Computed example of a mutant assay.
Amino acid sequence: MVEVPLGDRGWQKLGPDPAIRAWADAARAVALQTLAHSAEPWRCGGTWFVGVDALPNAADGSIGGTPFPWQALPLTPEPLRQAQLSVIRPGYPQPSLEETPAAFAYRRDRDAAHLDGLLPIGPTKARMVKEPHAWILGLPLNDTKASPLVLWEGSHRILRTALRKALTPHPPETWGDIDITEAYQAARREVFATCRRIELPAKPGEATLLHRLTLHGVAPWRPHDTAPPEGRMIAYFRPQLPTVEAWLTNP
């Protein structure tokens, strides 16, 4: 597992590159079929298809006979899970039964900003690091600026410091079972107060690479936004590191 140096910003935009574009075109054709036949319910009032593990790419990342564009990325080839197929429709987000009014307001006003890998555990929904990702790679499958990826530049450094402070008193082998909710929420407030919010739209043939500790989310669909009939569609890959210790201490 290679570490990707992303410096102080915590993100990088790649391309355009013909190999990335070829993969995106092949993936879009498969993704449209996936959407047409999926029984997964759309969330946020029918405006978000979450699509975890929904894109049927092979373990080498290839899809529809088109190879994954490793040569165009600052990444070392490794086995990949099936990608998340994240699709946003006009009107995102809408209130829904699965979210409290406060959660909906956070999604609408703060782009549902989150740190990947933290899951809500138990009746109190305590945040714990259950999926220690190595990096986050987004590959747009169609051409639109609607509801782009949003990130807070440099947030990975604030979150690393806060979570390391919260977890260091515990044995590293237990870090995935420690409630870090308070430390995470405090760090997130600091990020909102001190880090620059950036919208990062991208086209097929381009890619976005995020440091695994970068706070990010999705911008609401604005009234003037337009997209192809299927909505805004992005494939995301997040390979996992072997331990939470590696997730927190590696560069």
Rank of each mutant, 00 (worst) to 15 (best):
V4A: 00
D8V: 09
W11D: 06
Q12F: 05
P16C: 02
I20C: 08
D25C: 14
A29T: 11
A31T: 07
A36T: 10
S38C: 01
E40H: 07
T47Q: 07
T47H: 01
G51L: 05
G51D: 00
G51F: 03
V52H: 15
V52N: 13
L55Y: 04
I63M: 12
T66V: 15
Q71R: 04
Q71I: 11
L73T: 10
L73N: 04
T76W: 08
T76I: 08
T76H: 05
P77E: 06
E78L: 13
L85C: 04
E99D: 10
T100M: 01
A102T: 06
Y106M: 10
Y106Q: 15
R107M: 03
I121N: 07
G122P: 03
T124Q: 07
T124S: 12
A126G: 08
R127Y: 13
R127Q: 09
M128K: 15
M128G: 15
E131F: 15
N142L: 00
K145M: 05
S147A: 12
L151N: 02
W152G: 14
S155D: 14
R157W: 14
I158T: 11
L159N: 03
A162D: 12
L163W: 13
L167N: 07
P169A: 08
P171R: 09
P172I: 10
T174R: 09
G176K: 07
T181R: 02
E182M: 11
E182Q: 13
R188Q: 13
C195Y: 07
C195H: 02
R197V: 06
L215G: 01
G217R: 01
P220C: 10
T226I: 04
P228I: 06
M233E: 03
A235I: 11
P239F: 03
P242G: 06
P242D: 14
V244R: 10
E245Q: 14
A246D: 11
L248N: 07
T249K: 12
